[in-house]
Design a protein around this nucleic acid. Structure first.
Lengths: 205, 205
DNA sequence: TCATTCTGACCGTGGTTCCTGTCAGAAGTC
DNA sequence: GACTTCTGACAGGAACCACGGTCAGAATGA
């Protein structure tokens, strides 16, 4: 099949291409976030997206590439809402931490599919490596934020990086338990606990 | 095929059965701990074990059952070495925590396959649920130990359970990074950090 | 010795997924 | 209106796996 060039139904080739990619990403998030990694096969994604397998290869080389794209999008959403909350919140470090964690929690619960992919499915095989990279990235981000929040009371490297890992890993585990309904806690409970843990982990004591 | 009953090569039917089960478990650990979950197919396990697929069904109903058995064995090993270290160590809570964490770390690094399965592969699809159960079990265990170690300074329920989740999740993430060689830290560093984190997380502050 | 039992090797079926190719018809272009 | 391009549906092959069955030969027990 040749690469589409001219417009169709009043939509340019590039727009159609983008639209199809978007459909595939949406279908991927949907399947990954509801039926899990095992069910998110290439054919299933195409069926859900209402597209033929042929169009899959137009946007992605193989299934893993789609899954990574889904995860990356979620990661950047997390980064965005977290940093925005930090920037928009006035007050002491504890307030800022609560705002960032609150925004994070709201993103994961606002769309449960995002929560499942970010916390549960990302641990599975094709996504694990990227999840690990992202977690380290967030650990780094947290270390940086802790330094701007706490100044000299923050931990020096490499302990800040280690603290970031302990914090993100712990929070991930806590949120997994909470998202699966095993933990009788409110949104505010989770935020308070997360913020307290953030302070305890990233601050010199 | 009928169930074997008489001895063969001087080995009883039950012994042969157990031996084959053991071979399958060993092959499962080997594949899971070196090539990962995807490669650990039923046929691959049988080939590595030097057995026919027929004998697989003698011991396990399907692949997942074998994988769970592998994980469960590792979990009980972790429990054993941890509790034994606690029982055999005299001294203050910090010493005991270090001994338990040290024994845990040594188990995971002594056989890298165990480390990979326990920390990495267990997060994948068929094992995730069990991993989660086990983690909660360990969280409970840690909460109990914290109470005997710290007495009234320990956290009250349900905060002890939450602390257990934060601790196990954080440690898992830290160990993952360490096991994959991303963290320039010594065994002692990891143990010290783990013990400090244990104290910070499970103690009233 | 000889029938029985156990073993390991092999083949076959059914199902699934990935991936490519074909083809009729709709939409666009000249 | 005729030709080209794009689209969606579908067919089908290759690869893999789970799972069951067959079969010759080795080991056993009477």
């Amino acid at each position: 099949m040749s690469v589409p060039k001219r417009s169709y139904r009043g939509i340019s080739a590039q727009q159609r291409r983008d639209q199809r990619r978007e459909q595939l990403l949406a279908a991927g998030l949907d399947l990954l976030g509801t039926h899990g990694w095992r069910q998110t096969t290439m054919t299933a994604v195409c069926t859900r997206a209402g597209l033929t397998e042929r169009y899959f290869y137009e946007s992605f080389a193989h299934r893993d590439e789609l899954l990574l794209a889904v995860l990356d999008r979620i990661a950047s959403q997390i980064r965005d809402v977290g940093l925005r909350a930090l920037a928009e919140t006035e007050g002491d470090p504890q307030m800022k931490a609560k705002a960032a964690i609150g925004a994070f929690v709201d993103l994961l619960t606002g769309d449960p599919r995002i929560g499942r992919v970010a916390m549960l499915e990302s641990a599975a095989e094709p996504l694990r490596a990227r999840r690990h990279e992202l977690l380290r990235e967030f650990a780094q981000l947290i270390a940086t934020q802790a330094r701007t929040l706490y100044g000299d009371d923050a931990l020096p490297p490499p302990h800040d990086q280690i603290a970031g890992l302990l914090l993100t890993g712990g929070l991930a585990e806590l949120l997994m338990a909470w998202l699966t309904g095993e933990l009788p806690a409110s949104r505010q409970d989770i935020i308070d606990i997360g913020a307290a843990h953030f302070a305890a982990t990233t601050q010199r004591h």
